[in-house]
Amino acid sequence: MALMRVTSPHAHGPMSTQRVMQSVLLATVPGIIVLTHFFGFGTLVNILWGCVVALSCEALALKLRGRPLGFYLKDCSALVTAFLLCIALPPYSPWWLIAVGIASSILLAKHFYGGMGYNPFNPAMVGYVVLLISFPVQMTAWAPPRGVGELPGLMEALQACFVPATFDAVTLATPLDVMRQNSSLLVEDLWSQSPQFGRWAGIGWEWVNIAFLAGGCWLLYQRIFTWHAPVAMLASIALLAAIFNDAGSSASGGSPLFHLLSGATMFGAFFIVTDPVTSAVSLRGRLVYGALIGVLVYVIRVRGNYPDAVAFAVLIMNFAAPFIDHYTQPRTYGHEKSGGGS
């Protein structure tokens, strides 16, 4: 056998892109289970249908671009996008809503920019925002959690997805909505008068967030990403919430714990903000990136017009990532100063 001529290094570590993606998929499982427990099978159906659409879109794009199908499909990145978008969508979304969202993510946000690794914006969040702007009614129709409303069964969930016209949706404002629209009640009174609230935040929501936090911690332990961006984001949200809590008055924006365990906080912090392709690269850069996302999330939640803010905050900071990179280059060995900003 002829001897191979290759350059060093000859050894390679155990990590692969496929493994990174699979780990992310695995880490969403606790969150999906809790979502399903509290809101029914809607999210699961979303995800299943989303995966089918995502793989089809990915295959179509690869075919049009003349890329090897198998090689790129097995990196699982399309599945990750589908999972993340479908978790963010309201359960019991109609099939076309999911299809439009996924197509926007995979085709518009990813392949139009050059495919895997070349997209400046988080594909799942692009899909989410396209839907939120185009179909605000469907996108704000969250089902009431277990214990507050009646949960549809699996068949009904399938029906809601594929024959949406025949499905009679029951919706309830999310705790974040209630909190944002409140202008007259003390937080304490709001809590007792609204059925959505649980121990720390919304019923169901608090556990969904804790589940995603657990999944995120597992990814940290697996060294899939570093702690910098998520911790910075959570810290800045908590800090702003603490400053503007106003001791629970009617002008309060909500307590730090409420914000940390509401909406997509934990999901965003560990599954969206940590998307390496679209975030800042250096550790210092990721601290800045995460912290600024946290600020935007809080500001949009409390002062904006949308029920949650992670998608907008992330997209805005995606714009800023190269700028942050420019100023946060680390200090190289043997250099006096960091090379950033020059």
Partner: peptide
């Protein structure tokens, strides 16, 4: 064959010269 760089930063984490 090499796949696309996803800028995961694992290389920066292990670089002994603190490069990017």
């Amino acid at each position: 064959p090499a796949q696309a760089c996803i800028r995961c930063g694992m290389c920066a984490e292990v670089c002994p010269a603190s490069l990017l």
